[in-house]
Design a binder for these strands. Structure first.
Length: 922
RNA sequence: GCCCGGAUGGUGGAAUGGUAGACACGCAAGACUUAAAAUCUUGUGACCAUCGCGGUUGUGCGGGUUCAAGUCCCGCUCCGGGUACCA
């Protein structure tokens, strides 16, 4: 009979569920820990063996913390809105809600089999009206807020209106789309519509004409983090730049706080660095250039104010508002031709073929430091969205300007002593300034500083910090997402009343855009909002995927509250997430938006912590490990891996589930595909050995391993231990079922410590010193490892301990009891079973994690390694903590030393207590 | 191009600067068995060896610091990830 894992696991999973073992409530006298997994998007393919990796790690941590007496919040839910369900709906007509529900059920059943300690009473789904009510609510609060740089905080828009009424825009430092200036008098005489238009310029959730990533194939716009190299991340379709009226979130207002916050959270340095780069702070100056022959000036941003004397031309982005203004009559046709051409180029094409292109606008600007007249060009190497959409070009010291100058034969003036710019630009910020008027003789760094001061003093511009971080485009022209709680009156957007939330997603007949090109919601009947008996149209776009995932961790704290996103009591108790585990792919998306969203709620006083995730661990990706068979060309004969060189062969992917330790199950292979029914094999040592390669885990490579199958064959505890044993949590690694037997054997050995011939065989005798030493070594190691997320070495420690106890034939209850509790976070089912077998009536989850006692770990004797000139020669055993001179004496008198000492003089002896003796001779 | 990681046996991987290769897989030999599977025991970096003494060599490459370097420093090579006309 022995270790019947299937029965045990089913039994205890039911017990945990029926007794609500993992349900938690706010318990003020108990310290809390909040452990969170990034909730999954329930895809149609179900979980593969890579998905639970992080879940297992967080589960171990949660269970461990609970054993230490903490009140552990460990919830799970679903990021249920998303493109795949909608694409599937378009193809099949199946409603995305149905597909999503089905997938959620599949995910749940798969997760249940692994034995996680989630509090399922707190489950959330982003597509449920009870949940997205609060997504919509937060959006309205953003709509009704502006951001003040003065107090570095979001403030209610009503405050701003009051300020405008009294002082206009005077002395205000606000986050805005474009900077406006007006007096109180001017404001007060504006119409309602004009006022609304102005306020839109300041709202944190705002509607504006912005350049967006438009994906024609998906029929929607995408945020910057949803596009990579001009291709949509979901689906891989080309994306183009287009100016459209869209909802955006003013994330950029929080750029500095998002940057500063990184210093106080415990995330990996590489992830913080990725966010720092994405936020992209750069210090520089905004400098005003006058346009010759026009009473007009425009600003450019530069980090190299020191190079002002080397400006030989200016460049505008093709989309810049300055283009029509500065284009002269003579150049109008040429400019228009250029604009038409660049507009046609997709982002992808621009990246793929980085040819220098551009056109002269006809206008000249005036260099503010020396009055030189410089031509203004237009080129797509300047981006409209960064800085001011215009640059001063210094070809001598910027490689992009250099390429442009060479191509159009524009002058290049070197400004740094000794810089050779005949073949390439000199971009480094080092050297001595020349040809630079008042900057001559300074180093580049000094010159940057001096130039900035000069610009400010002479009112040529001002010092400025720029951020690469853009506002998040928040509209999606899709069906399967949260509807906006916004209606239109007189063409202007207004939020619906809070008591009318949620605005539920309407039913529609088809999941496609309307014939007139409106988003799918244009098909909904009665998609209107009634106010005082008047009907107004509702917004047709829906929110993007990150809307629902930005504050979900808060909702777990109080999932059923219909009065607030989270009550302040619940939030003050659970606060923020202590440990967040998830993939690094969310570094510039979800993890930025969540931090932004949380900071906004913090400003409003809704949450008590400024940062949502205190500590974050990125689990590595689990790749697939594909297997190959080798078919001899033009035959149905397959040759084993090591013999394949003798033939001309084609490698063919074979399902990894019919291969074991790289040995092919020939019968299953014949049954796998009718084509191979009569396949012949050339074997080696009676076996067919397959080749292998590491690839992405995917259906087409036949390398997907379903956790259900592993659980069925080896049990959930083996799966959990094996996933941890595979390697360091944060490292990417291929899934390789070879080796799982070793972990499974360990659990059987553990079982056999308790049972002899199916009889429980445990005695009450007090443990001896050796047994205590073994178990305390384990307790110490595992406690250290869990805090450091070094689970693979913990599993090794368990194996060592069980081997030792087996060798000692230990069946002492006291020792085995501790062993089970220490193992419980890793292998909860077998631990629970054995815990009850020992006569305990309560769950092992409520046991106390044992403390280790140093006194059992002390050795009476230690082994010294003796080296001569750094080379280890022999070892000797001495009593622990022997004084250094005595160690030295013992070593030098040792007979093994004589041969190394012969004919040499001792120059130096180093004694490392309890470890090493190194003798330098010569 | 820039910014992070990483490189250790046949394989996955262990090693607060302390004298490599924990643990596991695989492999080999042995025990049990009519046999196989399972289980158990032993061995297993490479090379040399009068194969149960003993020795040489060894953590991507080249230098350096140190009594002592996989680990620290300098210079490379290769691999992985992120990001990119960001002025």
């Amino acid at each position: 009979m022995g270790y019947n894992f299937n029965e045990i696991e089913k039994k205890w999973q039911a017990y945990w569920r029926n007794n609500k073992i993992y349900h938690v409530t706010e318990t003020p006298d108990k310290a809390k820990i909040y452990v969170l997994d990034m909730f999954p998007y329930p895809s149609g393919a179900g979980l593969h063996v890579g998905h639970p990796l992080g879940y297992i790690a967080s589960d171990i941590y949660s269970r461990y913390k609970r054993l230490q007496g903490y009140n552990v919040l460990h919830p799970m839910g679903y990021d249920a809105y998303g493109l795949p369900a909608e694409q599937y709906a378009i193809q099949t007509g199946q409603h995305p809600a149905i597909t999503t529900l089905k997938n959620i059920e599949r995910y749940r059943s798969q997760m249940d089999k692994i034995g996680f300690c989630y509090d399922w009473d707190r489950e959330i789904r982003t597509c449920e009206p009870d949940y997205y009510k609060w997504t919509q609510w937060a959006f309205i609060r953003m709509f009704e807020s502006y951001y003040s740089y003065e107090v570095q905080q979001a403030r209610p828009i009503s405050e701003l209106i009051a300020t405008f009424e009294q002082q206009g825009t005077q002395n205000l430092n606000l986050a805005c789309t474009e900077s406006l200036t007006f007096t109180a008098e001017e404001w007060n005489v504006k119409t309602e519509k004009e006022k609304q238009a102005i306020l839109m310029n300041y709202r944190i959730a705002y509607l504006a004409d912005t350049m967006v990533n438009w994906c024609p194939a998906l029929g929607t716009v995408l945020a910057n983090d949803e596009v990579s190299e001009g291709i949509s991340i979901r689906g891989g379709y080309p994306v183009e730049q287009r100016k459209m009226r869209q909802w955006s979130l003013r994330v950029s207002a929080y750029a500095q706080r998002l940057l500063d916050g990184l210093n106080v959270i415990d995330w990996t340095e590489s992830l913080k660095e990725t966010q720092r780069n994405w936020i992209g702070r750069s210090e520089g100056a905004e400098i005003l250039f006058k346009v010759k022959a026009l009473d007009y000036e425009f600003p450019v941003f530069t980090t190299r104010a020191d190079t002002l004397f080397g400006v030989t031309f200016m460049v505008l982005a093709p989309e810049s508002d300055l283009v029509p203004l500065l284009t002269t009559e003579a150049q109008r046709e040429a400019v228009q031709k250029y604009l038409d051409k660049t507009k046609k180029r997709t982002e992808r094409e621009r990246i793929a073929d980085r040819k220098v292109t551009g056109v002269f606008s006809g206008s000249y600007a005036v260099n503010p430091v020396n009055g030189t007249e410089i031509p203004v060009w237009i080129s797509d190497y300047v981006l409209a969205g960064y800085g001011t959409g215009a640059i001063m070009a210094v070809p001598a010291h910027d490689s992009r300007d250099y390429a442009f100058a060479k191509h159009f034969h524009l002058p290049i003036i070197p400004l740094i002593e000794g810089a050779d710019v005949s073949n390439e630009s000199f971009d480094a910020k080092e050297g001595m300034m020349v040809n630079s008027g008042f900057l001559n003789g300074l180093t580049v760094k000094e010159a940057i500083q001096k130039a900035k001061e000069y610009i400010a003093e002479q009112h040529l511009g001002h010092v400025k910090v720029n951020y690469r971080l853009r506002d998040a485009i928040f509209s999606r022209q899709r069906y399967w997402g949260e509807p906006f709680p916004i209606y239109y009156k007189d063409g202007m957007p207004y939020p619906v009343a809070l008591e009318d939330l949620p605005i539920k997603l309407p039913e529609i007949d088809k999941f496609l855009p309307t014939e007139s090109g409106e988003p799918p919601l244009g098909r909904a009947k009665d998609w209107i909002y009634e106010e005082n008996g008047v009907k107004y149209p509702l917004e047709l776009a829906t929110m993007p995927g990150f809307a629902g995932s930005s504050a979900y961790y808060l909702r777990y704290e109080d999932p059923c509250n219909d009065k607030a996103l989270v009550s302040s009591e619940a939030n003050r108790y659970w606060r923020n997430v202590d440990l967040y585990i998830g993939g690094t792919e969310h570094a510039t998306g979800h993890l930025i938006y969540s931090r932004f969203w949380n900071k906004f709620l913090f400003d409003l006083g809704i949450v008590c912590e400024d940062e949502p995730f205190k500590r974050l661990i990125n689990q590595g990706m689990i790749q697939g490990r594909s297997n190959f068979v080798y078919r001899i060309k033009d035959t149905n004969t397959f040759v084993s891996f090591n013999l394949r060189a003798q033939y001309e062969v084609t490698p063919i992917h074979v399902d990894v589930n019919i291969v074991s330790n790289d040995v092919l199950d020939i019968e299953k292979f014949r049954a796998w595909n009718p084509e191979y029914k009569n396949a012949e094999f050339i074997l080696e040592s009676g076996k067919y050995i397959c080749g292998w390669a590491v690839e992405k885990m995917s259906k087409s490579m036949y390398n997907v391993v379903n956790p259900d199958d592993i659980v069925e064959k080896y049990g959930a505890d083996t799966l959990r231990l094996y996933e941890m044993f595979l390697g360091p949590l944060e490292q990417s690694k291929p899934w390789d079922t070879n080796g799982i037997d070793g972990v499974h054997r360990f659990l059987r050995k553990l079982w056999n410590l308790f049972y002899k011939n199916d009889n429980l065989c445990v005695c009450e005798t007090s443990p001896n010193l050796e047994e205590l030493k073994s178990i305390h070594k384990l307790i110490k190691k595992v406690s250290y490892d869990i805090e450091h997320f070094s689970f693979n070495t913990s599993v090794a420690a368990f194996m060592i301990c069980v081997n030792e106890l087996t060798g000692l034939q230990c069946n002492k209850k006291a020792v085995l009891s501790d062993l089970i509790v220490v193992l419980a976070p890793f292998a909860p089912h077998i631990a629970e079973e054995l815990w009850h077998a020992l006569g305990n009536t309560t769950t092992v989850c409520d046991a106390r994690f044992p403390d280790f006692d140093e006194k059992y770990l002390k050795e009476s004797h230690v082994v010294y390694t003796v080296s001569f000139n750094g080379k280890a020669r022999f070892t000797i055993e001495l009593p622990v903590n022997t004084a250094a001179p005595d160690v030295e004496k013992a070593v030098l008198n040792h007979q093994n030393s004589q041969k190394w000492l012969e004919g040499n003089t001792i120059r130096k002896v180093i004694v490392v207590p309890n470890k090493i003796v190194n003798i330098v001779v010569g």
